[in-house]
């Protein structure tokens, strides 16, 4: 079996999920300059709502095909997450838009703790397994294994990212979002309703997060109330790696981080002569982040802004 190719495949799968989540961080950061710490929890809520919806629809009086169940469950997850994100912004961030910089960071952390524990109350402490909604098929490709789930994850992610870019760059709403990211004050002078744009940003980010939650739980076949935090952290790292505030950067950063992690985990033992094992996977990811930022303080795709005096 080709280890390198296998790790590349795993990395791409992981990376596409990171990229989806990273987009939510980067969009919010681009407009508000805020690390939305609660975003990872939205991913978790997405996964949990999806699983609940599947069991409700599957166990209900109606006999539905599996694909119908999946579509409805995903839509439910997106809907719930969007509403959640809308209220998170209204309650925890909007009143603090002109407050000292760290205040919204603390409310974001508070929100994250709150959501995680409410989720634990609702869905319990145990791991929830992903239902068998489809037959998992495995293909061998040049010595590496790929499952249909993995192909699906990568395919869906690419499709979603492409449509997001299209929305941002081709539609009126997208133009308003870009203008607001550039300067909320000037955008509002130009007739853009900044509050609506910000709400919309949170809603779109939450939609992506919900899908990411479904994909990640499909990939690992489990979901847990605490799954969002670390995932969110990694995704934020990916967004910074790519250059925060930059959509393409978030995608590149996400894929890159996924690849670094899985290739790093596969080879770290050989690289260090057996001194470090795959436990050091995260060290690898963070080290790359630190090195990139030390040499390019604005991330890979970030613009170099001359500090004008």
């Amino acid at each position: 079996m080709d280890i390198f190719l296998q790790q590349v495949i795993n990395g791409l799968v992981l990376g596409s999920v990171y990229a989806l989540v990273a987009l939510g961080y980067t969009m919010v950061y681009g407009i508000l300059g805020l690390i939305n710490f609660a975003h990872g929890e939205v991913v978790m809520v997405g996964a949990m709502v999806f699983l609940t919806a599947v069991s409700v629809l599957g166990g209900g009086p109606l006999v539905l095909s599996n694909s119908t169940i999946i579509v409805f469950a995903v839509l439910t997850a997106i809907f719930v997450c969007s509403i959640l994100a809308f209220f998170i912004e209204r309650i925890a961030y909007r009143p603090l838009r002109n407050a000292p910089r760290l205040a919204p960071l603390i409310t974001a952390i508070g929100m994250s703790i709150l959501l995680q524990n409410i989720a634990m109350m609702i869905w319990g402490r145990q791991y929830r397994t992903f239902p068998e909604l489809f037959q998992i098929e495995s293909y061998t490709f040049a010595g590496a294994n790929v499952t249909n789930v993995q192909l699906f994850i990568v395919g869906i992610s690419i499709a979603i990212m492409a449509s997001l870019l299209a929305v941002i760059h081709l539609t009126k709403v997208g133009r308003a979002m870009r203008a607001t990211a550039e300067s909320p004050q000037i955008a509002s002078l130009m007739g853009v309703n900044v509050n609506t744009v910000i709400s919309l940003t949170f809603i779109i980010g939450a939609g992506l997060a919900a899908i990411a939650g479904v994909l990640v739980s499909a990939n690992y076949s489990i979901a847990h109330y605490s799954m969002g935090f670390i995932l969110g952290l990694k995704a934020f790292t990916a967004a910074v790696l790519g250059g925060i505030g930059n959509l393409t950067g978030a995608m590149v950063g996400g894929i890159l981080l996924g690849l670094i992690e899985s290739i790093g985990a596969g080879y770290i033992g050989d690289l260090t002569g057996g001194f470090m094992g795959s436990h050091y996977q995260d060290v690898f990811a963070f080290l790359v982040l630190i090195i990139v930022l030390v040499f390019r303080p604005t991330g890979i795709m970030g613009e170099r802004v001359a500090d004008r005096s």
Binding site: I244, M276, D282, V283, F286, L287, I290, V294, P297, T298
Partner: peptide, 27 residues
Amino acid sequence: PTLRLRGDYLAIVTLGFGEIVRIFLNN
């Protein structure tokens, strides 16, 4: 290594350092 970084970039790098230290302690 973080001296040139500002604001939230600094935050994420220090976060990374914190995790690195913990992972080393763990392993």
